[in-house]
């Protein structure tokens, strides 16, 4: 019996976590798993902290992931990796975009953006990889392709055939954006 695996996508509203979760869900489904993907729409999408839960295995009940339960956290922004760190299972892995987006308390100068977050997380004994997904996305042709760059990166470690990812891209990405996104995926996979 395949054990239940839990992946979290975390980021800032507007960064495209929903599209990334659709791609990932599509890949897992074609691999024959029972899959649940849970996301929150509405108010929090307006530049707030957003999270999507993805769980797969033989039979999934709860669609949500709680503290200490995630095998992998894919973070679209550094502060968000730190915010959601408690959700990581012991021995779990974090992949984060090194981009920093200031939240309103920092913009207003009420609080500071904490420094060296990736290093501090690593110092806790956590397996964390940081990449500059924004630069790669811009290289692919659009700063909005950060989500797909990160999907490219995770595709290396997730262990599903590349054809499944390509098929998922074809089915989930709007046609007019497919070229940029395929490029972004390739750059993420090479990173």
């Amino acid at each position: 019996m395949a054990e239940t695996k839990a992946i979290m996508l975390v980021g800032v509203g507007g960064q495209g976590t929903l599209l990334a979760s659709r791609i990932l869900g599509n890949v897992l489904l074609s691999a024959g798993y029972d899959v649940k993907v849970s996301e929150v729409h509405g108010m929090s999408q307006r530049g707030g902290s957003v999270v999507t839960y993805i769980k797969y295995g033989d039979k999934i009940f709860s669609p949500v992931i709680e503290k200490g339960e995630a095998d992998i956290i894919i973070s679209f922004e550094e502060l968000e990796a730190a915010r959601w760190l408690p959700y990581l299972k012991k021995g779990g892995k974090i992949i984060t975009n090194s981009q920093q987006i200031n939240p309103m308390p920092v913009i207003m100068g009420v609080q500071e953006y904490p420094g060296s977050l990736t290093e501090k997380i690593r110092a806790k004994g956590v397996d964390i990889t940081a990449i500059d997904a924004l630069t790669l996305a811009e290289k692919a042709g659009s700063s909005r392709a950060v989500n797909v760059v990160l999907m490219g990166l995770i595709s290396k470690t997730a262990g599903f055939p590349e054809e499944a990812w390509q098929k998922a891209l074809d089915e989930c990405v709007p046609k007019k954006a497919i070229e940029i996104n395929k490029k972004a995926f390739a750059l993420g996979r090479e990173a």
Partner: peptide
């Protein structure tokens, strides 16, 4: 459940216009 967390204060990220 057991879990790790940082000592830093993580600024909240509320939704904005």
């Amino acid at each position: 459940n057991e879990y790790e967390q940082l000592d830093d204060v993580i600024p909240i990220r509320p939704p904005v216009m």
